[in-house]
């Protein structure tokens, strides 16, 4: 229980750091860190298969995508950095306040959802559910991946020529 509290706390902290940090590169790394913590939490919530996906695809692939994109942009000079930092802080001062207000608000109005009780025969394996009951989603995944391939062809192709 204590561990879960700690994981949630570190998840929020990591995402806050991702947003607040000054350099874009650190922001990208922060996103990967958030993903990793989320994957650990998913393991603890009895969802190992989804956690593996999160770890490999989000923490791996998407971070590589972001960090390689960020490395394409040129970094700022030292003076620009300091100036930039103040501009950023001026725009983000409201964020911690908003988070605190939200926490207090939600703590004040706790209401318990009516939780659905599962039927007796419950399928415990995600692979079985995915392949037997959610075939439409699998078809959708295939189509979306194909669309992604054409997206890469259309949006990135010209760059390779130059």
């Amino acid at each position: 229980m204590q561990l879960d509290w700690f994981i949630i706390f570190s998840l929020v902290t990591a995402s806050l750091w991702t947003v607040m940090t000054r350099s874009l590169l650190r922001s990208g790394i922060g996103l990967a860190l958030t993903s990793v913590i989320l994957a650990i939490f998913m393991f603890r919530l009895n969802s190992p298969l989804a956690a593996v996906f999160e770890l490999s695809v989000c923490a791996g692939l998407i971070s590589v995508l972001f960090i390689s994109t960020i490395s394409l942009t040129h970094p700022l000079s030292a003076q620009e950095k300091i100036q930039h930092m103040w501009v950023r802080l001026a725009r983000f001062w409201f964020l911690p306040l908003l988070v605190i207000v939200l926490v207090v608000g939600l703590l004040l109005m706790r209401s318990r959802p009516q939780i659905h009780m599962p039927l007796a025969q419950d399928l415990k394996d995600a692979r079985v559910v995915l392949w037997n009951f959610r075939q439409i989603d699998l078809l959708g995944q295939a189509i979306v991946l194909l669309a992604g391939v054409f997206g890469v062809v259309v949006l990135f192709k010209e760059r390779q020529k130059k």
Partner: peptide, 14 residues
């Protein structure tokens, strides 16, 4: 409702 979301995203991405 979830399959609806999947196909919405296909349309959106294209």
């Amino acid at each position: 409702i979830f399959s609806l979301y999947v196909f919405l995203e296909i349309a959106a991405v294209s």
